[in-house]
C-alpha cells in the first residue's frame, strides 16, 4: 500500500491515468490505454502493427497508389525488368506487377478478415460450450473437431475447394473450416481451467443460467487467447490462400491474388525472377507482420498480474 503522491494530471491523459476511475467507460478506456502503452513499448510488435496498418491503407487507397489499372494488358511491354515506370517490372501479359501487388492486398485482406470472422466465433462457441457442459455435449463436439483436425489443413482445404468448386468465396469457406478446430480446442482447454475457478462458482451461486455464465463469464477469459491464436494463424491463412491460388483453386485469373501471381511467375523464374519475387515478398512481409503483431498482443492480453 503505497501512498500515491503523484500530482493529478489534467486533460485526457489525466482522465486515462487517474488512480480511481469514476465510470465504467473510464475504467475500460484506462485498460485500453495501458494496454496500448504496453504494446507500444514492444518495438517488434510495433513493426507488425505498422505492416498491418500499411496493408490496410494500401488496400483502401489502391486505386490512388497503383500507377496502372490492375488488368491493363500491353503485350508490347511484357516481362519488362523493374524500372522507374514499372517498379516491379511487368508480367507475361505486360501488366504492371507493382499495381497488381497493390490491388492484391485487397484480396488478401478480404480473405483473412472473412476467415477470422467466420472461424473465431465458431471455434470459441464450440470450445466453450463443449468445455463448460462436458459430458455428452463435449464428447460429440470434440469427436467432430478431431475429424477436422486429423487432416493436414492444406489437404482439407483442397478437398473442400475441390468439392465446392474453385473461386475465392469457396476458398474462404474452405480455409475457415480448417481454422476453427484448433481454436475450439484452445477455447475448450481454457474453459476447463476457468470452469473450476471460484469466480465461476460465485456467479453460479447467484443463480446465473448456464448460457449467461458461458457468454458473459467464460468467453471473455478465452477471448484473448483466441484473438492471439487467430492473429498468429493469419500467416498460415495467407499461405493457404496463396497455396490455393498457386494451385489454381483459389482466386481465378485475372484476379491479382498473390498466390496465383506467384504460380504464373514460376514459369518465368529463370529469366524474369521478379514475377514471382514481388508477390512472394508481399506474402512474407504480411505474414511476418501478423506474427509480430500477434506476439505483441499476447504480451498485452495475457492476464499476468503485475
Amino acid at each position: 500500500m503505497t501512498a500515491a503522491i503523484e500530482t493529478e494530471r489534467s486533460g485526457l491523459v489525466g482522465y486515462l491515468t487517474a488512480e480511481v476511475s469514476r465510470s465504467p467507460t473510464q475504467a475500460s478506456l484506462q485498460r485500453l490505454y495501458f494496454g496500448c502503452r504496453r504494446f507500444a513499448q514492444n518495438p517488434l510488435a510495433m513493426v507488425g502493427f505498422f505492416v498491418l496498418v500499411a496493408l490496410i491503407l494500401i488496400a483502401v487507397f489502391a486505386p490512388w497508389i497503383a500507377p496502372f489499372p490492375m488488368n491493363e494488358q500491353n503485350l508490347q511491354t511484357r516481362l519488362l525488368w523493374p524500372s522507374a515506370d514499372h517498379l516491379f517490372g511487368t508480367d507475361e501479359l505486360g501488366r504492371d506487377i507493382f499495381s497488381r501487388v497493390v490491388y492484391g492486398s485487397r484480396i488478401t485482406l478480404q480473405i483473412t478478415c472473412l476467415v477470422a470472422v467466420i472461424a473465431a466465433p465458431i471455434g470459441l462457441l464450440v470450445g466453450t460450450v463443449s468445455g463448460y457442459f462436458g459430458g455428452w455435449t463435449d464428447t460429440i463436439m470434440m469427436r467432430l473437431t478431431d475429424v477436422f483436425l486429423s487432416f493436414p489443413p492444406l489437404i482439407l482445404a483442397l478437398g473442400f475447394v475441390a468439392a465446392l468448386g474453385p473461386g475465392i468465396r469457396n476458398a474462404v469457406i474452405a480455409i475457415a473450416l480448417t481454422v476453427w478446430p484448433p481454436i475450439a480446442r484452445l477455447a475448450r482447454a481454457e474453459t476447463l481451467t476457468v470452469r473450476s475457478s471460484d469466480y465461476i462458482a460465485a456467479i453460479r451461486a447467484q443463480g446465473a443460467p448456464a448460457w449467461r455464465v458461458v457468454v458473459k463469464h467464460v468467453m471473455p477469459m478465452c477471448l484473448s487467447s483466441v484473438i492471439i491464436r487467430i492473429t498468429l494463424n493469419m500467416a498460415g491463412i495467407i499461405l493457404t490462400a496463396a497455396a490455393l491460388g498457386f494451385l489454381g483453386l483459389g482466386a481465378q485469373p485475372p484476379m491479382p491474388e498473390w498466390g496465383a501471381m506467384l504460380s504464373t511467375g514460376r514459369q518465368y523464374l529463370l529469366g524474369s525472377w521478379f514475377l514471382a519475387a514481388a508477390p512472394g515478398l508481399a506474402i512474407v512481409v504480411v505474414s511476418l507482420g501478423f506474427n509480430l503483431f500477434g506476439d505483441g498482443l499476447r504480451d498485452v492480453l495475457d492476464p499476468r498480474d503485475e
Binding site: D198, Y199, A202, I203, A205, M221, P303
Partner: peptide
C-alpha cells in the same frame, strides 16, 4: 443463500 469463498484472489472475475 449466498456463499463467500476461501481465496479472495480467485473468487473475483479478473475482467
Amino acid at each position: 443463500v449466498q456463499i463467500v469463498f476461501q481465496d479472495p484472489y480467485g473468487s473475483l472475475h479478473p475482467r
